[in-house]
Design a protein around this nucleic acid. Structure first.
Lengths: 200, 200
DNA sequence: TTTTGCATTGAATAAATGTTCAACCAATAA
DNA sequence: TTATTGGTTGAACATTTATTCAATGCAAAA
């Protein structure tokens, strides 16, 4: 008999994790098409063959990353909405955490680029585009609701809530891409400038 | 003797223009690596061979597009600075024109994506990266100066001018990408929300 | 120690794609 | 009409790269 089930599963999970983590970095810095399986193989020290033991194709790796990116973002948005604090606090918290995430956690900016790439590019698996299409609105709707709540409280500006949401996410997205471009050189600007768009 | 010089030059310019225009669209929607010479060939109805008569490689086409994108943007920024109007008006004008450009002229959003791609990706000709490195700051510095002038006039908020500039361009960039993703479905939000970040 | 099941390897395969090049054609001057 | 120049073609070539697969290694059970 070979290794026991759990131990095998552990190895499998670790390998998958390694592959996904390196692939995220590569897809974000080179793009899907320009990332070679050999690149992933070299950076993970996992043979090409083994990568195909865990994922059926390069595209499946990409789709898997998109799926987890969307899940993480939506999960965070849902948690935010549930918090027992006023709308204004939620908005400040969201801005603070998102900007912090961009500065600290490299994978945050990388996820943003991955999603931008997937949404934008024709050369991306259909499945990835569908995941985004069906899930992207979730966080938009949540933030829009929070803005509307804040307007009732009289603390959020009286612009169209959905339009403010567009600015909210496009700006965050723009910052994340800027961070991805400039790396450590990027200096995050003061979040209060950003909050001026929304808060009275 | 063949066609005369001018007539030939005209044909050449037209062909180059065709190639560049189609390549811009393809690079912006698929990325450099995923765009095939055959794609450009098919969409322009120009044979593959002829493309190599005008450009020495796929990458040269890309570099050429990056160069003209940077030139256009910097030129616009320089013209803005020269206008004989108060700083506040310049800021409003810049925002108005940039947003209008994103909504109307498809190539504007496409240029933004091209530059983001080039700045971000490792799989991009070095020359393109160097053009961006050396030229990207130009427009940042111009807008920063205009913000500072506006602060002297007492019409621009007292945040760090350079940080406001970061928000200015990251937001524009984010909007342009959003437009590129959603195309005609994209609804441009009210520019006054945006201007709240900067104007008193 | 031997067997077994599964992870793992990397060379082989097949397909795709950037680039080249010899031949072709079209317009004009002679 | 003919010769010439230079735009134009597309098949051929060389290279790259995703994917497969037969063989190997290894940990645990018998």
């Amino acid at each position: 008999m070979p290794r026991n089930k759990e131990s095998n599963q552990k190895v499998k999970d670790e390998r998958k994790e390694q592959i996904l983590s390196v692939a995220l970095m590569l897809f974000a810095t080179k793009g899907l098409a320009a990332t070679r399986i050999t690149d992933i193989s070299a950076k993970t020290d996992i043979s090409q063959g083994l990568i195909y033991h865990y994922f059926s194709s390069k595209e499946e790796i990409f789709v898997s990353l998109i799926r987890s990116a969307m899940n993480k973002m939506n999960e965070a948005a849902r948690n935010l909405e549930r918090l027992p604090i006023p709308a204004k606090e939620k908005i400040i918290l969201a801005a603070t955490e998102l900007l912090k995430g961009i500065v600290k956690n490299e994978s945050t900016s990388q996820y943003y680029f991955l999603i931008t790439q997937a949404a934008l590019s024709d050369a991306i698996p259909l499945e990835a585009k569908e995941i985004i299409k069906s899930q992207n609105d979730v966080k938009y709707e949540i933030i829009t609701r929070i803005f509307q709540e804040g307007q009732k409280d009289g603390v959020v500006k009286d612009h169209d809530a959905r339009e403010m949401t567009t600015f909210f996410f496009t700006t965050i997205n723009g910052l994340a891409l800027n961070k991805a471009i400039y790396g450590k050189k990027f200096k995050m600007p003061d979040k209060n400038i950003f909050l001026n768009m929304f808060l009275k």
